[in-house]
């Protein structure tokens, strides 16, 4: 595994919210083509790390090198342009747009048409629109919800919404796809289908960063796993090793149960 080239290297990424140190200098490396799991108890800082990585938060310290160059995380669209796409823990779709339109929005960054092109519908704009739609249809098919293309996103089932979010993220042509708890709220068969989907995405050459609570899914799917606890990385290794690490066991079993909502604020 280690001969694979580096795709992302985070160095000492830190994020504070007032006195709360959500990330205390997290360093981790993701290699090209792997499925990298990020786990940890609620409030450990997993989603905060995602938000720092994708430009939604401005980190208080540290740096991220992506694909050989420093990643400018000052604005989310700059991160997306570099080839990092994400989904959200609490699904964020464009609820009143159709599934197809949701994915078409994902093509925004990779297309050019402006006001002039839109008004005069130049041949270039027409061709681009057709290509956007074609690609969006392909992606809906890819994630398995082609038959729901014309339904409003909010009317899709929970599992289909998760799929749609992944399709929309894929539409931005990412090299790294960051999934924030994609299996949350799914039943066993839906999780199984999700697993197949993620494996397929990896097979297509996209590196996957996965936050997940479903330990079985993480252990079965990920090549390597990092464990966060109280904003620090306490372990990073292949699943089999991580599972037996005493620090990890303490973090999970020693931590008191917190309400799931606390992660939205601190995570």
């Amino acid at each position: 595994m280690s001969e694979r080239p580096l795709l992302l290297e985070a160095r000492d990424v830190a994020k504070h919210f007032g006195g709360v140190k959500a990330l205390r200098g997290v360093s981790l490396t993701i290699r090209q083509g792997e499925i990298y799991g990020l786990i940890g108890p609620n409030g450990a800082g997993k989603t905060t790390f995602f938000n720092c990585l994708t430009g939604l938060y401005v980190p208080n310290g540290g740096s991220i090198v992506f694909d050989g160059a420093e990643l400018d995380t000052s604005a989310p669209h700059k991160v997306a342009a570099r080839g990092i796409a994400r989904t959200f823990q609490n699904i964020r779709l464009f609820a009143n747009m159709t599934a197809l339109e949701n994915v078409m929005v994902g093509r925004h960054q990779r297309t050019r048409a402006g006001v002039f092109g839109a008004i005069f519908r130049t041949p270039a704009t027409k061709a681009e629109e057709a290509a956007i739609q074609r690609r969006a249809e392909e992606l809906l098919h890819y994630v398995g919800i082609a038959d729901r293309a014309q339904d409003l996103a909010k009317h899709l089932s929970y599992g289909d919404q998760r799929r749609l979010e992944i399709a929309r993220a894929l539409a931005t042509e990412p090299r790294l796809l960051a999934l924030d708890e994609p299996a949350a709220g799914m039943n066993a068969s839906e999780t199984g289908e999700l697993r197949t989907l993620i494996e397929g995405i990896r097979k297509d050459g996209i590196t996957v960063l996965l936050i997940e609570h479903d330990v079985k899914l993480v252990m079965g799917l990920c090549d390597r796993v990092a464990v966060l606890d109280y904003g620090e990385k306490i372990c990073e290794d292949v699943p089999a090793v991580v599972q037996k690490d005493p620090r990890v066991i303490t973090a999970y079993l020693g931590a008191e149960a917190q309400p799931a909502g606390s992660e939205v604020a601190h995570g």
């Binding site: 669209h77 959200f88 964020r92 609820a95 929005v105 925004h108 048409a113």
Partner: peptide, 23 residues
């Protein structure tokens, strides 16, 4: 158009729109 979709996307969910690469 691409612009119109971006407007509606911002209306629907600004954070998701940002994450989709919309400036």
């Amino acid at each position: 158009s691409r612009i119109g979709r971006a407007w509606v996307a911002i209306r629907e969910d600004e954070i998701a729109a940002k994450a989709c690469g919309i400036n």
